[in-house]
Amino acid sequence: MLSSPPKLYVDNVCMTFKTATGVFEALVPVTLSIPSGRFVSLIGPSGCGKSTIFNIIAGLLEPTAGKVLIDGVDATGTIGRVGYMLQKDLLLPWRSVLDNVILGMEIQGVPLREARERALSLLQRYGLSGFEYLYPSTLSGGMRQRAALLRTLLFDTDIILLDEPFGALDAQTKLQMQEWLMQLWSDFGKTVLFVTHDVEEAIYLSDEVHVMGTRPGCILESILIMLPRPRVRTSSLTPEFIAIKEHCLNLLTASAPALPEAA
């Protein structure tokens, strides 16, 4: 652990925004150290700066202070280092599923034919066979999300950031997608950073969960989830799981601001 640097190291990153009404502290120094191959979740109320952290790690936003290190190398403000899946699927309506999925490789200059070949086998293996040449408008929400995730995966970076990927799906589809994601994760061994509102989802999927607080955004507590893998649905009924869930919910309720707030 000491000899090799963590896969992703977020070093005392702060962020302040200047808005029309004043200076807004989105993040006070946040530090995250994530070893290779971990599945890490961030949970917290809306406005706690989860998306801000993601934008900073993806290099889309320059932090006011602090650094982002990938494999020990400074990657602050550089784009194209991590795979980033935003809340919306953002599939381009004028491209087929196959051509949407290869977007990252295409931008990186991989020859189209090679990119398509690589994508085709993946699409077939991960539940999108038969959909390759369809256009996104004909796909269901779950299928669109799968395509968007595979697009992120095919960008072939060690780290992928998933910003509430299943937020808009119905409960049934969401469960299916979680299993699907677990399958992908164990097959590819990527380092995953996952944002969600759903405490149970976070615990079920992750090796560690970071609970965030708001105003200003910060990490309240980091919890290691020692539940054995592979996990099954009924894991969520075990006392350990329930204890962790209760702890997280307590943290979130305590950090929630009192409702009638002084302006």
């Binding site: 925004f17 808005t19 029309a20 009404t21 004043g22 200076v23 807004f24 502290e25 989105a26 809306s46 406005g47 998306s51 801000t52 708001t214 105003r215 200003p216």
Partner: peptide, 13 residues
């Protein structure tokens, strides 16, 4: 994101 509406006012800053 509700950066704007949850802005902490620091008018003197």
């Amino acid at each position: 994101m509700s950066k704007a509406n949850s802005a902490t006012l620091a008018s003197a800053s």
